[in-house]
Amino acid sequence: MEKVLGNKYLLWVIRIVVGIVFIYASFYKIISPFDFAKSIRNYDMMPIELVNLPAIILPYLEFICGILLITGKMRKGTGFWMIIMLVGFIIGLTQAYMRGLDIDCGCFNPLENASSKSEILIRIVEDFLMLAGVLIYMIFGGKKEIKKEPETSPAV
């Protein structure tokens, strides 16, 4: 199991795919914080007064974590924030789905129209897959491959 999940090519694919998704998802939100704030508000999970703050910070957190994931820098810090974000997205989408809220997901484009229930389900599944990927990266990404010690001639 460890051999499969810790495979360097699998970890490489996870980093590239999840990193690109996060960077792509941040673009529209960075351009239009007003529309993204609207999307957050529609989830009806926090007081209206507070929705602008995550609308300002979250897109950059997504962008920076995406870059760090691809480059493999600050693995634990990146993993921590990605897990927080993905769990938050999953909770938000699930409660919206359960309550039957007629919302736009705001996942990739805050200007998109109201998402259907099946679209919200797809987003939840996507987030779970990315969460699994990030967890694999967190657990196995730090383990260095055992390199053969270079043969050295004994000191004379």
């Binding site: 960075i30 351009i31 239009s32 914080p33 007003f34 704030a37 508000r41 209206i48 007064e49 507070l50 929705v51 602008n52 703050l53 609308a55 300002i56 910070i57 979250l58 897109p59 950059y60 957190l61 962008f63 920076i64």
Partner: peptide, 21 residues
């Protein structure tokens, strides 16, 4: 870093939002 960049760009962005809605 995210909060810093976010706050700076939000101030520059014409479509920026106020901190308290």
């Amino acid at each position: 870093v995210s909060a810093g960049i976010g706050l700076i760009f939000n101030t520059i962005n014409q479509e920026g939002v106020s901190l308290i809605a």
